[in-house]
């Protein structure tokens, strides 16, 4: 079946479009498995793995994004690896700084030669340019870079550490979650293949329907099991802790920066809370006034 996907974009919800595309791919794979089955070829359980990926990608994707995105920020964590990394950066910058100083001395010498030979004096202009754009003597940028963590407020350090600890736990939980779903699916596939050996499926739709029923029943049991509930709860808790502590880290940093002109989410939430409480009070007072008027 040929589908012009472009006609869907913007006209149906993106979720519908996503799921429809996945289902088209799933159907193709299952039709091939059915053709092999009809031809007497033994069904290979691994052929069904693609279907699992297509179904559950929809759910795994946001979780995997949470893992991947945080990796980009892992340099913020005050651990030994990052401190060493920043120290080595500061050494590189220090070396570059020294190179620039040597270059400056060399160029001053060169311009002095030209000045002696009666050509325009570039020396002063060059010195002025150099002085204007280099960092002031009192500020050692290179050293500050390697000491970045010590400049952070205590609470910020605490939150970033907790954020990454939660992120690591979340990563473990996510892989447990994925494995649980995969094991259940594979067990359903095995059961279905056994059924297919004894039952005769005259049509693809009957074949597919039996397959999906088998898988759905297995998942009905899994999704209410103690093991699943424990993994799901832990995964969500750790993910939420990670988000929360990361935000608090950023907020502590911002709140301790005098030049920061932005309100943090927590500060705005506090304002929202007060506004909501005041609104409730106003409604209460309005009701009391109405009551008094009626008397």
């Amino acid at each position: 079946m040929f589908l012009e996907f472009s006609q869907f974009i913007g006209r149906v919800p993106k979720e519908s479009y996503d799921l429809l595309r996945r289902n088209i791919e799933i159907r193709k794979v299952l039709e091939k498995i059915y053709r092999d089955y009809k031809a007497g070829i033994e069904i290979n359980p691994a052929d069904f793995d693609f279907i699992f990926d297509e179904i559950f990608r929809y759910f795994f994707r946001p979780l995997e994004l949470a893992i991947a995105n945080t990796m980009l920020f892992s340099f913020l964590l005050p651990d030994r690896k990052n401190i060493r990394l920043l120290e080595s950066f500061s050494e590189v910058f220090q070396t570059y700084d020294n190179f620039l100083k040597s270059l400056k001395d060399h160029l001053r010498l060169t311009f002095s030669i030209f000045e002696r030979d009666g050509m325009s004096s570039w020396v002063e202009e060059f010195e002025e340019f150099f002085e204007r754009y280099k960092a002031p003597e009192i500020y050692d940028f290179n050293r500050s870079l390697s000491e970045y963590f010590f400049a952070l407020p205590n609470k910020a350090l605490k939150h970033i550490s907790e954020s990454f600890e939660a992120w690591e736990r979340f990563g473990g939980d996510y892989f447990n979650f994925k494995n649980l779903l995969m094991e259940t699916y594979r067990s359903a596939v095995k059961e279905f293949i056994n059924t297919a050996k004894t039952k005769k499926f005259e049509s693809h739709s009957y074949f597919a329907s039996e397959f999906y029923d088998t898988v759905a029943r297995k998942f009905d049991d899994l999704l209410k099991s103690e093991e699943y509930l424990k993994v799901q709860n832990s995964m969500i808790s750790n993910l939420m802790d990670h988000f929360y502590h990361f935000r608090k880290f950023a907020e502590e940093w911002l709140e301790n920066t005098p030049l920061n002109p932005f309100a943090t989410v927590s500060q705005i939430d506090e304002a929202y809370k007060r506004i909501t409480d005041l609104r409730r009070k106003i409604l209460e007072l309005e009701n009391k006034i109405e009551e008094i008027k009626r008397r």
Binding site: R22, I55, F56, A216, F219
Partner: peptide
């Protein structure tokens, strides 16, 4: 109910 709602 992932199978019935995402596939079925």
């Amino acid at each position: 109910d992932p199978i019935r709602l995402v596939v079925g």
